[in-house]
Design a protein around this nucleic acid. Structure first.
Lengths: 338, 338
DNA sequence: GTTGGCACTCGTCGGTGGGGAGTGCCAACA
DNA sequence: TGTTGGCACTCCCCACCGACGAGTGCCAAC
């Protein structure tokens, strides 16, 4: 009974604080919400909530603001994800359906997510580990320089330049392509790497095959696509509110460190679950005042990448979670069709 | 005689202001530089410089700061580009030589440039208009969906998915590839587009060739590589000094608008000339307090793209110009070799 | 043309004193 | 036991003030 009202008070505090960015006091609270009790009662509840560590006051005799723990309770129990409006759904569909290829899907998604949430959006490029090799192409640019093109079932194309220590002619290239393609064609790339290891080079090869195989393995293990993250809406850092140095600066630096971004996005969650990491719960204490809302995407129930947004702990969680979930669903659907 | 000293005073003001970011007064000036005259004399010179519009004071009885016109004179006549140190040259070479392909060169360059200048670096992806077609590949993913791969002499690979209205078999694909490849192979892409227009489809084609040609033309005209710009060092926005809203915010927004960035970089300058656009000289008045230092790069004397940095008007022009020039030279050299 | 002196301007910085929002506590009441 | 109104108290915010000092313009002297 009282407990219910206390949670209602907490919810009201979170909502008001998110909306106004200012500590919220007992009087303002009863005015803006129909709590049916007097400010004095709310004050008692606030004292109890503070005792539990759910809210705090920046200084004596100021209003209260939620703690990370308070946001956590709010996200876990006091709110449901707002469904997107029909207009928003249409906007998502129309923007994403115009994509011409996989990279374009990622780039459009990241923009879209930034627009919808007014925060910094992150979309991981899909991992390749479940893809199969659809095609291997080998083109001689010069006698000692080959271009290797790898086409995967996901529609992704990887290319590598291969420098050779000894020259090769067109026939040699064709034969080599036949051998390599035979070893990897149709395989999941995880297996393809192992298969390549068993391949023996002909006696007069001169290290050419080894060089190509090495490049191919590197292209498949691929440090430049599955570990890459697209960033959008960096301008939204502007309303992070906190001081530039403590809040915006480290994030701005992180936006160019894809390793950091990947860690922020966290592990892929399958099954449409949206993960929320609030403030200090994250891996970096520089980001103690930022939260990350993320989820996995991929065809079927299989997660091939993560996407999400990062914003101040003081953010609109229900709306953000809804946007992240909606975009992930549409991206997944597109991958299903492809 | 006095005129020479006045220019020395201007140079000293620019240098001190760039170093300290604070208005510089007459007394500090004679202490930090060997001008051989008294503060009073310097004050007279300053009054004259202000009369000419080369310096200004933020408010009465503060020191002077250079105007855009003052920076312009400084850049044009009072300074020479500092050569890079041997260590810096080695660093540039070692970083760029590790690049595995063209995209990697661009990405490494932009990071390098940001590091060298401590500013926001921009590198335009090389334009394709002078490239020739080295290879066209056509792979049937499903009977009604083809993957088109275009390999250019620059080492760039473009791919497009082509949806067909009627199915095609492997022989049809092979024949089509033969026809298309015959039309464009070895040509500069500007000519290749025209040549494709003369190609007639066999009677039973069903619109397949048209679809492929359309995709190929689009891939060649290519709105996603020559008009793309890599951005690095966004974190360096932090020390732009001015207020966040007026200076950092608009730039942060622009960093995701490649069209704006291209316009900032300006027209390609060939022949190793470095262009400096100071403050209001640029195309956008939102960027009245930022300068752009840019130059073209490309094999030989031909410019295939621009690179540069954008920073506060109060920047180290000699050092920045040197870094931009050095990076452009190394990138050009790499393109020469490829 | 240069220099030292001097009065003046004006931004910066620390201190001060309401005003006000908000709190905690307590006594009264249901 | 929980709720309410009253009340004194705390402390941030802001505007105002005055001292300080860096820097200037001007002028008379060299």
């Amino acid at each position: 009974m009282q407990d219910e009202r206390r949670q209602a008070v907490l919810r009201a505090i979170v909502e008001d604080y998110v909306a106004t960015q200012e500590p919220v006091g007992s009087k303002a609270l009863v005015e803006r919400h129909q709590l049916g009790v007097s400010p004095a009662t709310v004050r008692n509840d606030m004292a109890a909530l503070e005792e539990e560590g759910l809210i705090t006051q920046p200084h004596t005799s100021a209003g209260r603001i939620p703690t990370d723990k308070g946001y956590r309770l709010f996200v876990d129990r006091l709110t449901t994800i707002k469904p997107m409006s029909a207009a928003e759904k249409r906007a998502i569909a129309s923007i994403l359906d115009g994509a011409v290829d996989l990279d374009d899907v990622v780039q459009r998604s990241v923009r879209l997510l930034a627009q919808l949430t007014h925060q910094v959006a992150l979309v991981q490029y899909p991992t390749l580990s479940r893809s199969t090799v659809r095609h291997v192409e080998l083109v001689a640019l010069t006698p000692t320089r080959l271009l290797l093109v790898l086409i995967l079932s996901s529609g992704r194309v990887e290319q590598r330049l291969v420098e050779l220590t000894s020259p090769v002619d067109d026939e040699g290239v064709a034969a080599l392509r036949g051998r390599v393609a035979g070893a990897v064609h149709g395989r999941v790339i995880a297996d393809a790497g192992a298969e390549l290891g068993t391949l023996v080079a002909p006696p007069d090869d001169g290290g050419i095959q080894d060089a190509v195989v090495e490049a191919l393995v590197e292209a498949m293990s691929d440090h430049r696509s599955s570990e890459r993250v697209a960033v959008g809406g960096a301008a939204n850092l502007a309303h992070f509110g906190d001081s530039f140095e403590v809040s915006v600066r480290p994030l701005l630096e992180a936006l160019e460190e894809h390793v950091v971004l990947l860690k922020l996005l966290g592990e892929a969650q399958s099954g449409g679950l949206v993960t929320v990491r609030i403030g200090h719960e994250g891996p970096y204490q520089e980001f103690a005042s930022t939260s990350v809302v993320s989820t996995g995407y991929g065809p079927g129930d299989e997660a091939v990448g993560n996407l999400g947004v990062v914003g101040p702990t003081r953010m609109d969680y229900p709306g953000t979670m809804a946007a992240v979930r909606a975009v992930a669903r549409y991206v997944s659907r597109i991958l299903d069709e492809a």
